[in-house]
Nucleic acid binder design. Sequence first.
DNA 1: GAGAAACGTCGAATCGATTCGACGGAGGCC
DNA 2: GGCCTCCGTCGAATCGATTCGACGTTTCTC
Lengths: 361, 361
Amino acid sequence: MGARRATISDVAREAGVSPSTASVVFSGKTPVSTQTRARVLAAAERLGYSGPDPRAASLRTGRSGIVGVVFEEHLGDTFLDPVKTVMMDGLADAVAPLGAGLLLLRDHDPAGVGASLTTAPLDAAVLIGCSGMLRESLSVVHTRGIPVVVIEGDAGADVPRIDLDNREAQRQAASHLRSLGHERVVVLSLPIRTDWVPGWVPETAGIEIDVTRERRDGARDVFPAAPVYAAAASSIDEGLAAGRALLADPATRPTAVIAQSDLLAAGVIRAAEEAGLDVPRDLSVTGFDGIEVDGLAPYELTTLVQPAAEKGRAAGAAVAAMLDGRDAASIRFTCAFREGNTSALAPGAAPPASGPVDSGG
Amino acid sequence: MGARRATISDVAREAGVSPSTASVVFSGKTPVSTQTRARVLAAAERLGYSGPDPRAASLRTGRSGIVGVVFEEHLGDTFLDPVKTVMMDGLADAVAPLGAGLLLLRDHDPAGVGASLTTAPLDAAVLIGCSGMLRESLSVVHTRGIPVVVIEGDAGADVPRIDLDNREAQRQAASHLRSLGHERVVVLSLPIRTDWVPGWVPETAGIEIDVTRERRDGARDVFPAAPVYAAAASSIDEGLAAGRALLADPATRPTAVIAQSDLLAAGVIRAAEEAGLDVPRDLSVTGFDGIEVDGLAPYELTTLVQPAAEKGRAAGAAVAAMLDGRDAASIRFTCAFREGNTSALAPGAAPPASGPVDSGG
DNA sequence: GAGAAACGTCGAATCGATTCGACGGAGGCC
DNA sequence: GGCCTCCGTCGAATCGATTCGACGTTTCTC
């Protein structure tokens, strides 16, 4: 009954060796004779000892084998986004060899309690696209002296970051549309800040979320006057709702929509179908991300393929480096333009003189 | 530079109090005079002390604030399944008030290293549908003396489990189909074991995965001779591939497919469309889960709606209870039958005498 | 055969905080 | 005014493992 769990000292005593020797048997950091090892293991078996207590070990070694991943949203919302899912997978792969696991953290802790950056035993932290609370999270992590890497966000000079050439990539898609003769183009953007209600973005409004701003800028490089309609999230449903709004008035209807995510683009295509428009004949739509959107067949989005898994892996590698005492470089990944069948000549436009776009090669 | 991080003793010394008092200021477990608190906080501020080291605290208290969630698959595969995603969300909600976070763990650790059940500082563990490694995981957890909850899996008598009335629910859908006159019915099942290659399941084959077996049994209660074709995973793509196989030969083609997940069902519907069949006129399809399948409109699946978020929350509640020293009861949730527009009278069948099914009320 | 190197084991210090019984002083009661 | 209570603070023990220099033995080398 009152059976306190066995400790390594108990095992050592049972095996007739010192605690240090027993410890070494489990950690393997120092050679131990075969018979000693066997004796210790047998003693452990007898006592039902299942290896060193991770809590005690982590106090001594200063390592817990835990990498925190900080999201700003509900987990459910996060994992609805295939890009994040794939990225997490890459991240998990990359930290596994470190002997580390991923701890899910929300930086906007509703209750005030809850495992958080402040109280979790972390070796390192990965912040994902948290533009809002980013500064706050960073300062917590910083005063705790925990290595940190940021994916898709600006964290200041000395924090390695992993991001994309959002602006350049989006510019490429926009050029593609321009070369197809499009002029009435609308940008359907991701939220411009957290808790954004879908709608047109006033020119005077600041765009707090980096990704959104960068992609918008890329589109504006080509279409300086393109209005921006921001959705509340990246999903087919949001895209559908936004698409309905954008396509409602035939008089002002755009000939092309530059969506900032594939899911939004898919929603716009559905909205177009609803409105009796043919994609791409009546409306061109471009996406962003390059994921497989279920249920979109036979459409293949014209989109920018981002290396999501690579991003995750790079973040993991950066964490590994910092844990090793080396310092990690920031990495900027490049998206690949992929032409699908959702973009075509603008209605009434003449075919372009040259190739449609500087898409590759 | 050699700036060692400040400890609580440093803070105490700086504030002119004892370490115990300083500790209490941060934990709030004992009343402290306002001025003492202020002095300690000021000292902490001065020294850049960001609160007690979680590692040390967890050694002393025996609590780490971490709940492990064990999957058997790749994270990416797991989160592809909306049911799991939603469940995780419920779980996250339920453990947050405990001050706990979720640590993602794969029980089948490829490298042998990697944070695992054995080495992570866990307060409790939640095992999800891991039928294969389940026993092994359980024994690890058990010798470590960690409370554990199992979702969708049999873990023996003294482990609380959260699951569904899979068999009864599936039987309900099958009855529905029978009452519509269907006789040539095929079960499109989830994998029958890990690493399963899609194909017909021989009658002699054992079904290792509980969910798969229970749902099959439910279907067999109504259609004892229904053949079973098992997919390799729950996804639209897998459903599509399976659907193609099932519908290939017009001579043997079923009039109804009982799919064990909504995603599989969606894939079958796509396959039917490809084959020029009308759903539900030529083919009825039922799903399981009751999630929103993107891109399936205008179809609304006839399916069994399971309370996924509730399951997660229940698991969290069970964990909370066990951490409190109470013991947690097993819970079996009930699915709700929902008739959509993907099931109809079997081709050439007479309308049923009574209502179509004992669906509710 | 003497000295050196190699190998395995041991001791003792240490990681940083928490906890609980003890203790001292201030205020209340009779 | 003396005694009792209450409240806040302090000491010291403890949580369980790791680490590294020291210390025999044994084996190898010249």
